[in-house]
C-alpha cells in the first residue's frame, strides 16, 4: 500500500498531531488545574498561610514528629506542624500505628490553623529513586531492543515495517500465519 494521501498528506497529519500535542502542553502550563496534581491544596500551599485554608479539604505531606497525638511537620526543618486527628484510624496501607519519622500524606479538612481532621492517611517508604531509575532504564532498553529486532526502516516507504518472519519465529509459534502476513505486510510494495 502506498501512502494514501502522499508523503505530503502524511507530513500534514504529523504536523496537525504535533500541533495539537504542543498546544495541550502549553494550555496545561497556563491552567491552574494541573491534570496530574491533586485537586486539593497541598502542604506547599497550606504551610505558609494555613489560616486561609481553614474549613477546606487539603492534602498534607510530611514526617511524623509526635505520635500521641500524631503531629507532622511539612518542612524538613520541622517547621509547619499540624496535628492529625484520627490519623492512625485513617491509615490506608499499614496496620501498625505511625511512628516518629514515618513519612505520611494525610487528606482531610483543616479544622484550625494547625489541626487536620483526617479522612485518609497514606504512609510510604523513602522513595527509592535508584531502584526506580534502574528498573525503568531496563524497561526502556527492553522496548528499544525489541523494536530494533522486529522492525526495520524501509527507505522506499520512508517508514518502519516489520522484519521478515524468520527472526521472530523464535519467540512463539507463528507457523500458521504466512498468508495473512503477506496480505498486510505490503509496506514495501507502495
Amino acid at each position: 500500500m502506498s501512502e494514501p494521501y502522499g508523503q505530503r498528506g502524511r507530513a500534514l497529519a504529523a504536523l496537525v498531531l504535533a500541533g495539537l500535542l504542543t498546544g495541550s502542553l502549553v494550555v496545561a502550563g497556563a491552567t491552574a488545574d494541573d491534570p496530574l496534581e491533586s485537586a486539593y491544596p497541598d502542604e506547599t500551599d497550606v504551610t505558609p498561610s494555613p489560616e486561609t485554608y481553614v474549613g477546606e479539604q487539603v492534602v498534607l505531606g510530611g514526617f511524623v514528629v509526635e505520635t500521641d497525638p500524631v503531629v507532622i511537620a511539612t518542612r524538613a526543618s520541622g517547621y509547619g506542624q499540624f496535628t492529625l486527628v484520627d490519623a492512625d484510624d485513617a491509615l490506608h496501607n499499614a496496620d501498625e500505628p505511625l511512628e516518629t519519622d514515618d513519612r505520611v500524606t494525610a487528606f482531610g479538612t483543616l479544622e484550625d490553623e494547625s489541626t487536620l481532621a483526617v479522612e485518609r492517611t497514606v504512609t510510604r517508604e523513602q522513595s527509592e529513586t535508584r531502584y526506580m531509575f534502574v528498573v525503568s532504564a531496563l524497561a526502556g532498553l527492553w522496548i528499544v531492543g525489541r523494536f530494533a529486532r522486529h522492525w526495520q526502516f524501509d527507505r522506499d516507504a520512508v517508514a518502519f515495517v516489520p522484519r521478515a518472519r524468520s527472526d521472530d519465529a523464535s519467540e512463539h509459534g507463528t507457523d500458521t500465519r504466512p498468508k495473512r502476513d503477506d496480505a498486510n505486510g505490503g509496506g514495501r510494495r507502495g
Binding site: 500500500m1 502506498s2 501512502e3 494514501p4 500535542l21 517508514a159 518502519f160 505490503g186 509496506g187
Partner: peptide, 15 residues
Amino acid sequence: LLVIGLGTLLLAPAH
C-alpha cells in the same frame, strides 16, 4: 493518544 498517533505515522501505511 496524540503521541501514539504521531508514532503510528512512522510506520508503513499498511500497518
